[in-house]
Amino acid sequence: MKIGIYCSLDAGAVKDRSIEYIGVDQGVTHLYQQGILPIIAIGDMDSIENKQLLEKLQVKLFSSIKDDTDTALAIDYALDQGYDEIEIYGVTQKRMDHFMAVLCLLEKYQDIKITVYDQWNKISVLNAGVHYIDKGDYHYFSVFAFDESVISLKECHYPLDHYHLKRSDPLCVSNQMNDDYAIIENNQSILLIQSK
């Protein structure tokens, strides 16, 4: 079961209008602007400008002084409701500290299918295995290890064969697919970033 989470920053239009959405702070506004009524609003609501939008919604209000980010609270809510696939919008621009927190969440929840979108990027985790990555709208792809992983890259400009990729190694940035897909094989979870 898939759900979307739209957070405070404007990340453009959602990719899948057929699913339900959680609005996080100003993300409620971004969803309303796309004609989407969130099933719930979650957060401390410190960034939402039009508080009247909350009147029609179920709201899970938190103090701004807390141990989790609003995004983490929204993910926890989605998982508690039985969702096992999550699309996240509005977390990758301006506040780099919040973006780093999202990367921590991707690592923490690497067994859950979570994809982060903005106007230029698609970010996800690839668990151990062989993956066929469709080019879609994205020109570049990069992979990064959470700890370390042995990876092979095929059908791309810069192939690798059983390369030992460590967390501190930026070798696999800005690769390109030869045609419409690339093949990535990895023995541990890695972070995949596809960029336009």
Score class of each variant (00 low, 15 high):
M100K: 07
Y140Q: 05
L9R: 13
Y132T: 15
T69H: 02
D70I: 06
K15A: 09
V130I: 15
T92M: 11
F62C: 06
Q81S: 11
I114W: 09
A101S: 11
L57W: 11
V173K: 15
E55S: 13
S142R: 07
I184T: 04
A74W: 08
D118R: 01
L165H: 01
L54Q: 04
E20P: 02
L57G: 09
E85P: 05
Y163T: 00
Y21C: 05
A41V: 02
N186S: 13
I48M: 00
L105C: 02
L103K: 04
Y132A: 12
I48W: 00
Y138L: 06
F144C: 04
I190M: 01
E55Y: 07
L73F: 07
V173R: 12
I36V: 08
I133V: 14
D97Y: 00
L103G: 04
Y32E: 00
C104Q: 11
M1K: 15
Q93W: 10
D46Y: 02
Y140F: 11
S63Q: 05
R17N: 09
F144G: 02
A11D: 13
T115F: 06
I151P: 04
I3N: 03
G90V: 03
L57V: 10
L103D: 03
I40N: 06
A145S: 14
Q81K: 14
I22E: 14
K113A: 13
G12R: 01
G35Q: 00
Q110C: 13
